[in-house]
């Protein structure tokens, strides 16, 4: 493996830790997240993890070396949120879900049309001239992994969420890819946030993923009376167990996700 050298200038600019994009959270975590960390966020539906994922990219120290890979949302929706909170729009955004829909679902749709309505003459002429099956069975997992691995030192990246791959790929492959991502992140002092739904994730796999991660967050939502309470729990923080805690947060128009700093009395 090639040795990576970091310039003194970069070391000074990026520092030992990077921000979460949530100033109050940085403060609680001793200044931010150490460079080279892979953060895994186990999420619940409606717990605000998608918003947090985007917010995590907002510091964008180097926009060209920052990327948000979303598997569920469309470009337009993402841009709308970034505009709303005035986050930098010049970062890289990739919407795997949209790509998947374009390549796979479109084909399924066409197959249904052929089955229902039959072939027309132009279809038949095209069929007679098509000699090979379009085997462009895209391997999104490899594509995404390669994309992150290609990022330069001190990158900042978010993969929201891993569910897309867990549902479609062999779990062993997903775990293996995560190990590669973790190693790369550590080596080039990047920051990588990966979200993954806690619901339905096999316990063994959850344990493995948590084991690979340098930091584990759990996003939860619960109802209190007629209100929802969202919280994030830091269940793992490599070499800093003092950072483990439960943080209730809310979403404000100015700061987006922000933890409540007032200690509640149970």
């Amino acid at each position: 493996m090639a040795d990576i050298t970091f310039s003194a200038e970069d070391e000074e600019f990026f520092g030992k830790v990077g921000g979460f994009g949530v100033p109050k959270f940085d403060a609680v975590m001793g200044g931010g997240v150490p460079r080279g960390f892979l953060i895994v966020a186990f999420t619940q539906t409606g717990s605000g993890s998608e918003l947090f994922a985007k917010q995590f990219t907002s510091p964008a120290e180097e926009p060209e070396n920052t990327i948000l890979i979303s598997t569920n949302e469309a470009q337009q929706e993402i841009i709308r949120v970034y505009e709303k909170y005035d986050w930098p729009l010049d970062i890289g955004v990739r919407t795997v879900g949209e790509e998947y829909n374009a390549s796979v679902l479109e084909r399924d749709l066409l197959a249904s049309r052929y089955r229902l309505e039959g072939f027309q003459l132009p279809d038949i002429q095209r069929l007679a001239q098509t000699r090979f099956v379009d085997t462009e069975n895209r391997d999104f997992l490899t594509e995404v992994t390669n994309e992150v691995m290609a990022l330069d030192p001190y990158f900042r990246a978010v993969l929201d969420s891993m569910d897309f791959f867990v549902q479609r790929e062999d779990p062993a492959r997903v775990i293996s890819m995560m190990r590669m991502l973790q190693a790369h992140t550590q080596m080039v002092r990047g920051l990588l946030l990966v979200t993954i739904s806690a619901d339905g994730l096999p316990p063994g796999m959850r344990q493995e993923v948590a084991g690979i991660a340098d930091m584990v967050l759990e996003f939860k939502v619960r109802t209190i009376g007629t209100d929802f309470e969202t919280s994030m729990t830091v269940t793992k923080f490599r070499n800093a167990p003092e950072n483990l805690r439960i943080l209730v947060f809310r979403v404000t128009p100015e700061e987006c996700i922000t933890p409540e700093t007032v200690e509640r009395i149970a």
Partner: peptide, 19 residues
């Protein structure tokens, strides 16, 4: 010229979602 039309069955399967 289309007098003989040769169809690959695997392509047909793929188009019909029969793969």
């Amino acid at each position: 010229t289309g007098l003989i039309n040769v169809f690959d069955v695997d392509v047909l399967y793929s188009w019909l979602g029969l793969d």
